[in-house]
Design a protein around this nucleic acid. Structure first.
Length: 812
RNA sequence: GCCCGGGUGGCGGAAUUGGUAGACGCGACGGACUUAAAAUCCGUUAUUCGAAAGGAUGUGGGGGUUCGAGUCCCCCCUCGGGCACCA
């Protein structure tokens, strides 16, 4: 063993070793208990940033810790390698996205290896590889055949500068996230996956799922957005036109003084025909069309609308009330039309005030003091102005009764709606998985035959979307034969959202080389759900929800029997720099590579674990990395000193016993912290122990051989998951074997307790004195001891409280 | 606006879930070694009064419960995140 921790040499040595060792090659059929440990696969941006380092360090701690605990750990890694950045680079530089992407994957892979994390690289997958996207297409066709994928006209976000559609999540406050151009709505024939069919199950599943952060579950619940209420029909007086409205507040039905229908509602043209003010309505509709989606959706915008001059009947009062068209009613939520109750809904109130529509109060607070002259009242109370329903309590009781009325009179029914919409997966982009469908004039829309997959991404020169998707530029690609009648037919030219690729990659890891099917179902049923999933909180909704949907859909197709993809989820917090998320475009990336060079991977790993609780977001600050490097150097020195001591057999001295207790206490504490993902305090436990060791060595004590071995072994095992290079090196040089084959450390219960401890003496809960006493001291003896040492009158105490034998509190 | 999290020394953060607040680390200050610097080592480091012993104050602010509150309850301020005309 060298006199110094030469991290560069040592890290290289062990990384080479791990690459060729069986340490992480997972045999799925082993009879050890399984543990699927998964870090979210990265988009290959080219360089690791600190967020990746944090993610993969946490993941690696779990891999190594679980291995030592006897689990057969599967820890794979791959690439989310389709997507817009490669395509934009191609537009700029002319370099093919494939070439560009693969170069970046190679670079990132070498950095991941440089971090020293264990991955079973034999299972590596990349979303853009033909072997992978062939099966993405296969699964897509399965969904299509089972009515879970469909094509429909829909508005999309179009960026006219990038000449492409954008996903909702790429639209930041109404503008393109890349070029800041205002996004325009555009109607296109689009592909959707029927995630909404699973709304209820996706919501329910959150109750039964494993250990997920509460905030992620809440975000998913909100996204799914379940509301319960009533739905009923309104008839336009003097016509045979009817439409449904949905409300969560049937208790306010008597207060409905108008109805509103969305400008995009399917009845709009018919309504316009019936209206006396056709021109006004047309003008209004035109004005809406010129507004961007963002403008329309903005809550701060003043509400606008137009009176149709038509009337509808309030079904419970039979009164005639006006029908308006207004864009504050959204066509794609509920029924696209509402009953408006201005007295008890803020939006309706604002609209009614502006257009001078009657505001009728039908609920009053229990103290009967509120009126609606100045604002809407949305709170609880009792019904008024509501006929036979007066004095019922709102919302629940009255809602229930009025709903019963609607049902009894066949006007309406109970109804549950969800905000979750179907998942729009079409992208008019090049660098994605082609949608494997064919349009035949005679036979309609048909999937490519399974045996003809993959539908290869064509080679084209110009990646810009000018008129139609980039794939439409390849005649060879577009023109094909109908799989049914063999006549000339045309391929779909859209590609899939990359979230489709990432919805099933964790399945492919289980069977990455299968050439006959996307995966063997037995592996899926045995190995899924993933036991521990680790990734950034930014994927709390989209990726995690889509993957959950995928599993449920594929289960219903008979491909698997599991219900959820990820059992336990750990969301690490983001690492920001300069107050912002690190990103290339902001130029605030901190490059981990320089720390590999100046401090080493072990010190960087340790620091990133130590700097904050892993679930907290942190501002990057490298001030402390010096500290973890110092710690490793000191530990190396201390262990070297111990190793160089002559082997001796002797009785344990008090110092030895104290050190023995400390290692046992440290094992217990580190193990507890690991189980709870509290790596920051696990690191501090090791530092504390190392300080104790330094103190011990100052006394020129010689450790008896047996304790020496126990101590070296255990401290290295505790260190190994977090700083595996150094732990492996010292372990090998002293014990001449590979630490990765060791079992996790056990502590000895009988060697945890200190023989003496400090008894704290409180008066009225306030610390006044402290005195060293023997462990197990009787309470009476403790009192006697305190009486003789301190000026306390125990006889006059109202109460004497012993707290966990550690504190004696005298209440006076 | 609504829904989640937070607020503890100069800084990152500990605190067994109601029981010694400030572990561990960074930084700073003083000292040793050195011709010097770096590295390393030894001390000090919440604030405040005090020469010291020792005392007082102290976990965003205000109130409360309790022998005892960073931790529980009520009100307020503030920062971060998510959703946002969802009927």
């Amino acid at each position: 063993m060298n006199s110094q921790f030469e991290y560069k040499k040592i890290e290289k040595k062990w990384q080479d070793h791990w690459e060729n060792s069986e340490t992480v090659k997972c045999d799925l059929k082993s009879d050890k208990p399984k543990f699927y440990n998964l870090c979210m696969y990265p988009y290959p941006s080219g360089d690791l940033h600190m967020g990746h380092i944090r993610n993969y360090t946490i993941g690696d701690v779990i891999t190594r810790y679980k291995q030592m605990n006897g689990f057969n750990v599967l820890s794979p890694m791959g690439w989310d390698s389709f997507g817009l950045p490669a395509e934009n680079a191609a537009i700029k530089t002319g370099i093919h996205p494939r070439e560009f992407t693969e170069e970046r994957i190679a670079n990132m892979k070498s950095q991941i290896i440089r971090l020293g994390s264990l991955y079973d690289w034999d299972r590596e997958v990349a979303a853009h590889s033909v072997d992978y996207y062939k099966w993405t297409q296969h699964l897509f066709i399965k969904l299509f055949e089972n009515d879970l994928a469909y094509k429909e006209d829909a508005p999309v976000n179009w960026c006219n500068s990038c000449r492409t559609v954008l996903a909702n999540e790429q639209v930041i406050e109404g503008s393109c996230e890349r070029c800041d151009t205002a996004v325009e709505p555009k109607n296109l024939n689009q592909w959707f996956l029927k995630i909404s069919e699973y709304s209820e199950e996706l919501l329910q599943g959150l109750e039964e799922i494993g250990d997920w952060p509460e905030n992620v579950k809440t975000m998913q619940r909100n996204w799914i957005g379940k509301s319960e209420g009533s739905q009923f029909e309104l008839n336009i007086i003097g016509t045979d036109l009817t439409f449904d409205v949905f409300t969560t507040r049937p208790d306010t039905l008597f207060g409905m003084t108008f109805a509103v229908i969305s400008p995009e509602h399917e009845l709009i043209d018919l309504i316009m025909e019936q209206s006396e003010k056709k021109d006004e309505i047309q003008n209004y509709l035109d004005s809406i069309e010129n507004k961007s989606e963002f403008e329309r959706m903005s809550i701060t915008k003043e509400k606008t609308g137009v009176d149709t001059t038509l009337k509808v009947t309030n079904p419970i009062t039979n009164e005639e009330v006006p029908l308006w068209i207004a864009d504050y009613v959204l066509v794609n939520y509920g029924t696209g039309a509402i009953m408006a109750v201005p007295a008890h809904d803020e939006r309706d109130y604002e609209f009614a005030k502006k257009y001078d529509i009657e505001i009728r109060q039908v609920i009053i607070d229990n103290e009967k003091t509120i009126n609606v002259d100045n604002e809407a009242f949305t709170g609880n109370g009792v019904l008024m102005n509501s006929g036979e329903f007066n004095d019922l309590s709102s919302h629940e009781e009255a809602s229930k009764k009025i709903n019963e009325f609607l049902v009894k009179n066949k006007i309406g029914d109970e109804k549950t709606t969800y905000r979750l919409r179907d998942w729009l997966i079409s992208r008019q982009r090049y660098w994605g998985c082609p949608i494997p469908l064919i349009n035949c004039e005679d036979c309609g829309l048909l999937p490519e035959k399974y045996e003809n997959l993959p539908v290869l991404l064509p080679e084209i020169k110009d990646y810009i979307n000018t008129d139609g998707s980039p794939l439409s530029k390849s005649k060879e690609f577009v023109e094909t034969d109908c799989p049914k009648c063999s006549k000339k037919a045309l391929r779909e030219t859209d590609t899939m959202d990359t979230f489709v690729d990432s919805s099933w990659y964790y399945m492919r890891f289980l069977d990455p080389k299968n050439e006959k099917e996307p995966f063997n179902s037995n592996f899926i049923n045995e190995w899924l759900p993933v036991d521990q999933y680790i990734g950034g909180v930014e994927h709390a909704i989209l990726h995690l929800l889509y993957s959950r949907f995928f599993v449920k859909a594929l289960r219903d197709l008979g491909l698997m029997t599991i219900d959820e993809p990820f059992h336990n989820l750990f969301s690490q917090g983001m690492i920001n720099f300069g107050g912002a998320k690190m990103s290339k475009s902001k130029g605030n990336i901190v490059d981990p590579e320089e720390y590999f060079a100046t401090h080493g991977a072990d010190a960087l790993r340790l620091y990133i674990l130590f700097m904050a609780p892993p679930s907290d977001g942190v501002e990057w600050n490298d001030g402390g990395i010096e500290g973890t490097k110092r710690f490793l150097n000191k530990l190396w020195d201390n262990l070297l000193k111990i190793i160089n001591q002559e082997d001796t057999e002797k009785e344990l001295s008090e110092d030895d016993k104290s050190l023995e207790r400390k290692i046992n206490q440290t094992i217990k504490s580190v193990t507890q912290h690991f189980e709870r993902f509290e790596f920051n305090t696990a690191v501090s436990d090791l530092m504390k122990f190392n300080n104790d060791l330094s103190e011990y060595l100052k006394h020129d004590s010689i450790l008896p051989k047996e304790l020496k071995d126990v101590l070296i072994k255990n401290i290295l095992i505790l260190l190994y998951p977090m700083s595996p290079h150094m732990a492996s090196e010292i372990y090998e040089s002293y014990f001449d074997s590979d630490i990765s084959t060791e079992k996790w450390a056990n502590f000895d219960d009988s060697k945890l307790e200190n023989p003496m401890y400090e008894l704290v003496v409180q008066i009225n809960g306030k610390k006044k004195h402290a005195i060293m006493v023997e462990t197990g001291i009787e309470e009476d003896d403790a009192i006697t001891l305190c009486e003789s040492n301190f000026d306390i009158n125990f006889k006059e105490a109202k109460k004497i409280i012993f707290i966990k034998d550690k504190i004696i509190n005298i209440v006076q």
